[in-house]
C-alpha cells in the first residue's frame, strides 16, 4: 500500500514536471533538441515508472515510521537546521554554531552540561579549522562585525 501511495505521489511529480517543462522559453536559434526535449523525456519516464510502482503486485514492505517523541525530535532537528541556515548570517558563525551544536547534542541525549561544553569546544575547533587553517570566510554576524 505504501508503495502505491508513493507511486501516486511520484506520478503527480512527473506530471507537474512535464507541465512545467511546457513553460520553458525557447529562443528561435535553438539547436535541434532545444531546452525542452530532455525534460519531457525524463518526465515521461518517471510517469511510466511510477505507474509500474502503482500497478505491480503489492509487496509486503514494513516501514517502521517514527512516532511520538521520536518523530518530535526529528521534527525539531529539521527545524533547527532551518533556523541555523537563517541565523548564521545575522547571528554570525560563533553564536549560531554553539546554539546548533548544543541543541542537537541534547536531542541526541546528552546531559545539558556536557552538551554545552561540547558545543563550545566543537565551535572553537571548527572556527580555528575553517578560519585559520583553511582561510574560509565565516560569517561574522552582528557580534563579531559583519
Amino acid at each position: 500500500m505504501t508503495d502505491r501511495l508513493l507511486g501516486a505521489f511520484l506520478l503527480l511529480v512527473g506530471i507537474a514536471y512535464a507541465v512545467a517543462t511546457s513553460f520553458i522559453q525557447v529562443g528561435f536559434t535553438s539547436d535541434t533538441l532545444g531546452p525542452r526535449a530532455v525534460p519531457y523525456l525524463l518526465g515521461f519516464v518517471l510517469i511510466l515508472l511510477s505507474a509500474a510502482l502503482i500497478l505491480r503486485p503489492a509487496r509486503p514492505v514494513v516501514i517502521e515510521w517514527p512516532r511520538g517523541a521520536v518523530l518530535l525530535s526529528l521534527g525539531l532537528a529539521v527545524g533547527s537546521f532551518i533556523l541555523y541556515a537563517l541565523a548564521i548570517e545575522p547571528l554570525g558563525f560563533v553564536i549560531s554554531t554553539i546554539l546548533q551544536v548544543g541543541f542537537l547534542s541534547l536531542l541526541f541525549g546528552a546531559r545539558p552540561l556536557p552538551a554545552l561544553i561540547g558545543a563550545v569546544l566543537t565551535t572553537a575547533a571548527l572556527y580555528g579549522l575553517f578560519n585559520f587553517l583553511l582561510g574560509l570566510r565565516l560569517p561574522g554576524g552582528l557580534v563579531f562585525g559583519g
Binding site: V101, A110, G118, L138
Partner: peptide, 18 residues
Amino acid sequence: QWCLMPAVIVISFIAIYA
C-alpha cells in the same frame, strides 16, 4: 553520537556555505 553527529551537521553546513 551526541558529540559526533552535531559536528557532522555543522561541518557540512559550513563547508557548503563557504
